[in-house]
Design a protein around this nucleic acid. Structure first.
Length: 283
RNA sequence: GGUCCUGUGGCCGAGUGGCUAGGCAGAGCUCUGCAAAAGCUUCCACAGCGGUUCGAAUCCGCUCGGGACCU
């Protein structure tokens, strides 16, 4: 039997992935799996540049509006969800399309993530609260004492990674390094990648225009309605966090809009760097 | 016309004779579980000219540009 194929369309925010993905899906008469860590939340709309209702009607999208901001969504959740979704698509199609800009999620889908024992919520909470209170110094001392191997090999200037290492150690008793094999899972389907790129200045122009359009579409109102949930991870999102600052009267509205544009550029740059280094398969 | 203050990189901002902050933006990068996250690296300066000094962004003079006040 011929192997099935998943075509992945990747690229920075605002390059035009959505449109290309839909065209391609229609050409193959198939469906799309979104690989976007924010568009999966049904409560987030204008600020995350979801496909329009019409677009969603014309091609079925997995992982869009599939979760709530109260759910725990991460790379592992995505991997499992996406694998299930392609399999479903492959039941009736030879080709599936994945569209998205969340590099880590795409990587998890392509290569798999190592099995790491689940971490108790209470431990995670404890660590992040202690870090908030005592800072990086405390964290790095704690790592040194609990997981000297990580202290030696790991990224000891990145609190996020250190906290992850610490939570794994504290809940499993083993260093996270024991679980990170770096082995890639072989999928039983072909993967082809199309990484979309346009000149930087053009991308930045599109970003600016899109932010203005979002504001016209009522992003401020949306942000306002999400204010009660601002502490949730899905709300740590460009376009919302800046408007929360405005609603706090910390910055002016113009200032907030400028910041959204700037932070979106930063985000896009990180995506470009990621895809440059990671998406060398296919195409 | 006079008196005084002031001039630091794209922006903000310390330094006030030798050790040439820092932040933001810009550029580059890292990446196996919060990733639209988190972190790392890096370019760019002392308004101009002259003087003092072993040595000046720092002291002196002049020029130019800002600002304040006086008649």
């Amino acid at each position: 039997m011929e192997k099935k194929t998943c075509i992945i369309i990747s690229g920075a925010t605002a390059v035009g992935k959505t449109l290309h993905g839909i065209e391609l899906a229609q050409k193959y008469n198939t469906q799309i799996i979104s690989a976007d860590s924010r568009q999966c939340f049904r409560e987030l709309n204008i600020g995350v540049a979801k496909p329009t209702k019409e677009q969603l009607k014309s091609v079925h999208h997995y992982f869009i509006n599939s979760h709530s901001i109260h759910d725990d969504v991460n790379a592992k959740v995505f991997e499992q969800y996406a694998i299930k979704s392609v399999q479903k698509i492959f039941l009736s199609n030879d080709v599936a399309i994945m569209v998205g800009g969340t590099g880590l999620y795409i990587k998890a889908f392509c290569e798999g993530l190592d099995e790491v024992p689940p971490v108790k919520e209470s431990i995670r909470k404890e660590i992040s609260e202690a870090y908030k209170k005592y800072g990086l110094q405390w964290l790095s001392e704690k790592i040194k004492e609990q997981d000297p191997a990580y202290f030696f090999w790991g990224e000891i200037e990145n609190p996020r990674r250190m906290m992850r290492a610490l939570e794994v150690k504290l809940s499993s008793g083993k260093s996270i390094l024991n679980f990170q094999s770096g082995k890639k899972v072989e999928r039983d389907f072909n993967i082809k990648n199309i990484n979309l790129e346009i000149p930087r200045d053009e991308l930045y122009k599109r970003i600016n225009q899109r932010v203005d359009a979002m504001m016209q579409d009522g992003l401020l109102k949306e942000a306002e309605s999400l204010l009660p949930y601002r502490h949730l991870n899905p709300l740590q999102t460009v376009g919302y966090k800046e408007l929360f600052e405005f609603l706090d009267r910390k910055i002016s509205l113009d200032n907030a809009i400028e910041k959204i544009k700037m932070n979106t550029r930063h985000f896009a740059k990180r995506q470009i760097t990621w895809f440059k280094g990671h998406m060398k398969l296919g195409n």
